[in-house]
């Protein structure tokens, strides 16, 4: 394992953890979900990286600018910049493992960004875990989460210079990010990917929900339902075995 910072095109440093040998045949870029969801998802992504390492494959788990330990101001970040960050992660992989195949695996918004960049980054394998299909819906859910906590505990709305809707539980949502998230809609604008993607629904239902199935059909790919709690939202750890088993049987063993 190596922990390091690597550069973006605009000279920021992103934090990354590399697992596995640099001479691996295939290297995975692991893309975390949005901001606070990364905290809950980070361990699951590490467990995926460890599983890949056991199989002789390598991975780079990184954080987008303004999140985790990567440099940059979250309030100034936007999806365009994060797509560039993904490109910087791919470049770092190519620097370390010039001959390796590139694989992308993302969770939630990380999956969405991986899909948007997969073709141009030359990814040969693409795994999307509960991709975020609608940015607007995501923003509304974040607002609901905040209201739930405030109403349950009686906590005061923080007296703040920031508009309440721009303070996502301690993350300052910049205008650029808000605009780009609000218009993000994979149901209307389906990105193209010339290979089959592996799509995982994670949640309580054993059947793939119609919107995700429709999305998978549009990508000419299969979606699979994994029954387990939405780990990116949880405070405590949950057993990631159902997802790891699904990845092994559907992707890693293939």
């Amino acid at each position: 394992m190596q922990a390091f910072f690597f550069p973006t095109g605009d000279a920021l440093r992103l934090f990354g953890v590399w697992r596995g040998v640099e001479a691996a045949r295939r290297v995975w870029v692991l893309c975390p979900p949005f901001a606070e969801e990364e905290k809950s998802a980070r361990r699951v992504l590490t467990l995926i990286a460890q599983e890949l390492e056991k199989r002789g494959e390598s991975s780079l788990l990184f954080s987008f600018r303004g999140t985790g330990d990567s440099e940059g101001d979250f309030a100034a970040a936007n999806l365009t910049a994060w797509r560039e960050d993904l490109r910087a992660a791919r470049d770092e992989v190519k620097k370390r493992a010039p001959h390796a195949e590139i694989a992308l695996l993302g969770v939630r918004l990380g999956a969405t960004l991986a899909l948007l960049e997969a073709e141009s980054l030359g990814a040969q394998t693409l795994v999307l875990i509960e991709p975020l299909l609608s940015g607007r819906s995501f923003l509304m859910q974040q607002s609901a989460k905040k209201q739930i906590r405030a109403q349950l505990t009686g906590e005061a709305e923080a007296k703040s210079d920031h508009s309440p809707s721009d303070d996502l539980d301690g993350w300052k949502l910049g205008a650029g990010m808000k605009t780009e998230l609000s218009t993000l809609d994979l149901k209307r604008e389906m990105p193209s990917f010339s290979r089959k993607a592996h799509i995982f629904q994670v949640g309580p239902r054993a059947e793939v929900a119609p919107p995700l199935q429709h999305f998978a059909d549009g990508l000419n790919s299969q979606a699979r339902a994994v029954v387990m709690p939405p780990f990116w939202n949880l405070i405590d750890y949950s057993d990631p075995a159902p997802l790891l088993d699904g990845l092994k049987s559907e992707v890693f063993d293939g």
Binding site: S137, M140, Q141, S143, A144, K145, Q147, I148, R149, Q151, L152, S165, A209, P211, P230, N233, L234, I235
Partner: peptide
């Protein structure tokens, strides 16, 4: 049901009933 579970119900209403919760009408 804690805040995390309640949030799951909010997501469930949206996913399975097509109900989107605007800020103004959200009440625990």
């Amino acid at each position: 049901i804690d805040s995390v579970a309640l949030f799951e119900l909010v997501v469930g209403l949206e996913d399975e009933f097509g109900i989107s919760l605007e800020d103004a009408d959200f009440q625990v």
